[in-house]
Design a protein around this nucleic acid. Sequence first.
RNA 1: GCCGCUAUGGUGUAAGUGGUUAACACGCCGCCCUCUCAAGGCGGAGAGUACGGGUUCGAGUCCCGUUAGCGGUACCA
Length: 500
Amino acid sequence: MTDTVRVRFAPSPTGYLHVGGARTALFNWLFARRHKGVFILRIEDTDTQRSSEAMVQGILEGMHWLGLEHDEGPFFQSSFVEQHRATARRLVEEGKAYFDFTPKEATDDRTVKEKIADRFRARAEAGGDRNPYRDLPLEEAFARVEAGEPAAIRLKVPEEGSARFDDMVYGPQERDYSDIEDLVLIRSDGHPLYNLSVVVDDINMGITDVIRGQDHLTNTHKQVLLYEAMGVPVPRFAHLPLIIAPGKEKLSKRRHGEVVSVTTYRDRGFVPDAFVNFLALLGWSPGSDQEILSREELIEKFDLAGVNKAAAVFNFNESVQRDWTDPKALWFNSEYIKSMALDELVPMVSEQLKRAGLWREEYAGERSEWLARAVDLLRARYRTLVEFSEFGRPYFSDEFEYEPAAVQKNLKDERLRELLPGLADRLSSVGQFSHDAAEAALRGYAEERGVKAGLLINAARTAMTGQSVGPGLFDIMVILGRERTAERLRRAAGLVASNP
RNA sequence: GCCGCUAUGGUGUAAGUGGUUAACACGCCGCCCUCUCAAGGCGGAGAGUACGGGUUCGAGUCCCGUUAGCGGUACCA
């Protein structure tokens, strides 16, 4: 037990990195870091039909964005197929596996479930006899293979007794051998299959702890059988509860699309640490009330004993635009945005401004301090980075839209047509253009003209940002500066509604 | 069909070896603050622990059954 912990994340590149995969990767990474072990990335690309290079890139990108850097790899399973074949062949020679000459059945993946049911029924009618090739003499079997007859290789599962292993999350697991079919190790076309490949690779990579989704729980018995057949020690296993869709439906890439893809969260303005924090608490708890946990705290507190057994609902809501994903994920993000170190936030916002075409070179130079102030002013009211370039646009550009509802609400009083330019003049004359000076000037002007300060304040906010909501007006004025303030106030006079 | 896993407010989770009115967070509602919206502060509604049986002085915690959801059962991964 003093051996170095070695874990791996082994996605198959048949799709983008989704939240379930990301959570599995995260837990492996946390476990490795917690135990000062090694985190390995292995791409299981043996399904050549469905795997693609683009998906490999997508997975790598997603992991990099999440900050889950691997210590070894990426290894590609496809480069180990010779070894997989050799292992299977050796098992045949040792009498632990056998050649099956039964002609391959055509499979169409769309109807597998029905096929399985059909097969079960047929088997029950036939009396459930076992494979006739199971006990074919070795010489005869090899002779037929030499002669070119296609054969799959299957593992000989014991006829009586049961397989068992102890799962670090789900506890002791037992399954009758009679419920396990002699699994195919190598297809008749020579292609190694999943259960064989993982086991061989995990052995080669010295994996000590296999941490993966619960969808592999029952198949683990087959893998344990394989370890035993090869005469090597069985690693520890930990299965993670699955992440499911609202309504406790299963998560489907097809149906739920990009809302479950990690890159969507990157593109829609999530802070990586916030998303990691959210993911960590989906199926795991530190056992305390603490919700906000830094990466370091996560590593320090991570423990498989705190992993929950029930599937966790990822509560996204595709139908509501501003609440497109799990509200708690959004809350974590806004929490990070408003309380993380400003000098970490500013580069993220800068990146967003670049993407939106709002970046100016001065922000990196003489205006860097101004940028930090602007970000600090806005951060408490935004939930994603993207909002800095959307709702935040008027702060970074002179070209922005006036929201009709805001204009309607705050620029409808006809007196404003004249008051706004008047206010601009008044503000131009204040000495130091500060928050307090601007406020004094505005309030004084309002009193002189016999209008409520609120009228001017709300009108000015809409005049300056096109919006009816936002930071305190005088903060807005200071951040935009005297010239822009005056200019926007004058410009907006033209928007004041003419007589209703 | 068969095998397995799971089941605490709408969601994520707490409640060491069974022991007072089931806790926290998100979300929701209200109040305060206030030039608006957030943020922040304060308060509230919302579960009697899927259902039904047991065991026990006592069960969210143990046992059995039912139901539901999910997973597996492939010459997919």
